[in-house]
């Protein structure tokens, strides 16, 4: 391999990695924001992405609605669905038996329900593809070939992440979320309504999942099992420390870039392994993740 080729591959790998990585970063953000505020890893995150994708597909293809209605409608539906699940199901589970394990099992239950529902409708029987938001045209950045669709994906993801970080840092609701993440008891003490905050957190997580679905669907074949893409979101979250929102974003981009570099330099068959090798390396060298802060020592 000549030096020219190495440079070419590097540029291409980073460019493609940033694009797909931005979607992983969104997924990781959706996972981490729920975990941070309720200690529950949401195992239905992938199915939330999948369900949102099918809602959009249904409205767009089977109801022939215009895209400018379909996108907000999908995001709103995902927001409402996720918030309602938190309020109607998880709150009840938490009240009956507050142990986090039960909540995790409930999210697993939701993932089966959503997958079963999509199979039931029959839309998931044949892999479908989703019409892209913009007609992909090839563009060269340096020596890397990307498409206009890629640029739209990256730009949208970055804007969504920026808006989310602004909300989390500067608005009253964002501050309330951080307070709940640090100490739910103390948060209630100063007047934060836990039920409301949990609903909003789940709603936001659902909304972000829907945006990720809209961005990724034109690039992948849609099936009822497409939720497995969220495994990479989990990988990104773990690399970032699982409780750090900036960590989730950096983790997302890292996983995306690693995947692409491995695909170019080693073999396209090694791509599926790359994220897991990355997780293992991070867990061995820095168990708390890249942004996980110091290791907490618990008094027993």
């Amino acid at each position: 391999m000549t030096l020219d080729v190495v440079f070419l591959f590097l540029q291409q790998g980073v460019a493609s990695g940033l694009v797909i990585g931005s979607v992983y970063a969104l997924l990781a953000l959706a996972i981490v924001v729920i975990f941070k505020t309720s200690d529950v890893p949401n195992f239905s995150q992938g199915e939330m992405v999948m369900a949102a994708g099918y809602i959009a597909l249904y409205l767009l293809v089977f109801r022939s609605m215009p895209l400018w209605i379909v996108m907000p409608a999908t995001i709103l539906a995902a927001y409402a669905g996720a918030a309602l699940f938190r309020r109607l199901v998880l709150n009840q589970v938490a009240r009956a038996n507050g142990s986090p394990v039960n909540l995790v099992i409930a999210t697993l239950g939701l993932s089966y329900v959503l997958r079963g529902f999509v199979r039931q409708t029959g839309f998931g029987d044949t892999p479908r593809s989703f019409p892209p938001v913009v007609e992909p045209q090839s563009i060269m950045i340096g020596q890397a070939a990307v498409t206009t669709l890629d640029l739209v994906i990256l730009a949208t993801a970055v804007v969504v992440m920026a808006a989310f970080f602004w909300m989390f840092k500067y608005t009253k609701i964002g501050r309330a979320m951080r307070a709940v993440g640090m100490n739910p008891k103390a948060a209630q003490l100063v007047g934060v309504d836990l039920t409301r905050i949990h609903m909003i957190v789940w709603g936001l997580s659902g909304g972000i999942s829907a945006i990720a679905a809209l961005l990724i669907s034109p690039k992948v074949l849609m099936t009822a099992d497409m939720g497995s893409i969220v495994t990479l979101g989990f990988a990104a979250a773990i690399v970032g420390g699982f409780t750090s929102l900036p960590g989730a974003v950096v983790g997302g981009f890292l996983i995306g870039i690693i995947e692409n570099l491995v695909g170019l330099f080693i073999s396209s068959r090694a791509i599926v392994l790359a994220p897991f090798v990355a997780i293992m390396l991070v867990l061995v060298i820095r168990p708390q993740g890249l942004f996980g802060g110091r290791v907490e020592i618990k008094k027993v």
Binding site: A187, Q188, L189, V190, G191, V192, D193, L194, T195
Partner: peptide, 12 residues
Amino acid sequence: PASAMAGLGVAR
């Protein structure tokens, strides 16, 4: 709810 008490002027 516990979160309403702060607004009612109860602190602990």
